[in-house]
Amino acid sequence: MGILKDMFAALKGAGSEVGEAIIDANAVRILEQEIREAEKAINNARQSLTKLKGSEIRMKREINSLNTDISDYEAKALEALNQGNEELAVKVADRIAEHETDRDEKSAEYEKLSTEVRKINTMIKNRNKVIQKNKRELEKVKTIKELQKTTSSISCNFAATGSSAHRVSKALERVKAKQAKWRDNMEAGDWMVEEENTDDLSKELKEAGIGTRGITGNSVLDRLKEKQRPSA
């Protein structure tokens, strides 16, 4: 069962008391401590795994070396037999037998070691998964804990305002009034800027069509016609 389901089941059982602390701060510390200890254990396991893996590689090398020696001696024993030197061949065969016994013992040990390495590796991977899951769970717990902190101040706020009727509506009205006032001020500001940029006399002259002659297509055409006219 996920931690959230657990927590909310507990909350439901407790009758959903306002301000009730679902999360015990101590429980969070314990969970954090558990994660830290599990991480430490994994690190230790990793170190032993490195050593075991080293032994495994070394043993594999020894086995390979023994196998090479065995092949080598086998060739030599055959050569001795071909030469008809039975006595030497028996000596070599004895050596081969020694090597094979040694190799078989080492192989058995190697298999055991390999199984152990695989086991520890799987254990570390599984533990890591658990730790990652625990960390995510802890984050959820902490989120709820932080939300509780914000909620406790919320409860205080509502208590302070007495949760009077139409509290929200009244607050909304106040915000809207402030926003309207802000917009009015902005408009007033724009109007002032426009007013400052045009004085009364300029406005009157503009209205009378005086001083507002700009360059237009017609005025350019008139000017050109004037130029074209032969001078008297």
Binding site: K142, E146, L172
Partner: peptide, 18 residues
Amino acid sequence: EFPIHIAMTDTQILSVTP
């Protein structure tokens, strides 16, 4: 009129408006 409450966890910033 409606303040925002901000809290931090190890990975998140939570912003809550009652």
